[in-house]
Each structure stands twice: as C-alpha cells, then as structure tokens.
Simulated scan of single mutants.
Amino acid sequence: MRYIRYACIAVFAIALIGVALANRSIVSLQLVPAEVAGWFAVTPQISLPLYIVIFGGIIMGLFVGFVWEWIREHNQRAEAARQAREMRRLQREVAKLKGEKHHGKDEVLALLDEAG
C-alpha cells in the first residue's frame, strides 16, 4: 500500500513539474483593470511566471474552501462540545449516585450488588 501511495505522489509531482515547465512564460498581473486604474492614477501590477499564478490560484482556492468548510461546520462542533460536557456531567452524577447507594454498606456486599 505504501508503494502505491509513493507512486501516486510521484505521478502527481511529475504532472506538476510538466505544468510548470509548459507555463514558464512571464505574465503581468494587475490588481485592478486598466480602465479603473486610470481613474486613480495607480497601476499596481506584478510580473510572475504563469505556473506560479496557476499554483497560487489552486492554493488560494483550497484555503478558501477549507475556511468555508470550517465555518460551515461550526454548529456541528458546538453541538459535539455540548454533548461532551453533558456526558461528563452525567458520568460524574452516576459515580456520585453509585457512591451514595453503597454508603454505609460492607464493601464486599457493595461489590456483589454492583456485579449482579
């Protein structure tokens, strides 16, 4: 199973290297369109290889998706935390009631009563 995983990683790495080699040309990224930049007399732009733009877009998309999913699952995490608190409270209550039930009894009889 480990070799299959390594083979998949190698194929994926070769594909990424192929994409990077095929897209080495320099592109210019502008923060705002040229028409809007003319209004403010500011033209923020940067020149990067195309593969960095492609990989950066993929990474940013993954990041936005992970954050979106984390926010979406907030209700489930809150409910799980509430249930965990309730379970701990009930476990403490059960332990306390077991202790009260056998209070003043012989230890051997209390153990036999719990087992039966």
Rank of each mutant, 00 (worst) to 15 (best):
I4E: 07
R24A: 07
A7G: 08
V108M: 05
Q76T: 06
L50Y: 09
A84Q: 15
G56M: 01
Q83T: 05
L111Q: 12
L50F: 09
F12I: 13
D113M: 01
I46V: 15
R72G: 04
A10G: 12
N23T: 12
A81S: 10
L29Y: 14
N75Q: 10
L31V: 11
V94A: 07
L112A: 12
L16K: 02
L48C: 04
R89W: 07
E86F: 04
R5A: 03
W70Q: 05
M87C: 06
P33M: 02
D113N: 07
G61K: 00
M1G: 11
G61M: 11
I54R: 01
R85F: 06
V19D: 11
V27R: 15
S25Q: 14
A81Q: 14
L50H: 06
R77W: 04
L21G: 10
F63Y: 05
I59L: 15
K101Y: 13
I59N: 03
R85I: 07
N23H: 14
G99L: 04
I14W: 05
M60G: 13
R5V: 02
H102K: 03
A20V: 05
G65R: 01
E73N: 12
Y3L: 10
W70A: 10
I71E: 02
I4Q: 11
I59E: 03
V42Q: 13
D113A: 07
A37F: 03
F12S: 09
K96L: 13
G38S: 15
R85N: 10
G65M: 04
A95R: 13
W70H: 09
V108R: 04
A115Y: 11
L21H: 10
P44T: 14
N23A: 06
E100G: 02
Q30H: 11
G57D: 01
P49A: 10
R77M: 04
I46E: 10
V36Q: 15
A80V: 03
R24Q: 13
A81W: 03
P44K: 06
A22W: 10
I71N: 03
D106W: 01
L31Q: 11
R72F: 03
E93L: 06
R92Y: 01
Y3S: 08
K105C: 02
W70D: 05
R88M: 05
T43G: 06
G116P: 00
L16Q: 10
F12E: 05
P44H: 08
L48A: 10
E86T: 05
N23Q: 08
A34W: 02
M1V: 11
K98S: 12
E93V: 00
E69P: 00
R85G: 10
T43I: 03
I46A: 12
A115M: 13
L97T: 14
W70G: 04
Y3T: 06
K98L: 13
R5W: 01
V19G: 05
V32M: 14
A13C: 08
E100S: 08
A10T: 04
H103E: 10
Q30Y: 12
K105R: 15
A115E: 13
G38E: 15
F63A: 02
M87P: 00
Y6L: 14
N23R: 12
E35K: 11
P49V: 00
R89C: 02
G57M: 02
F63K: 00
K98C: 09
R72H: 08
I59P: 00
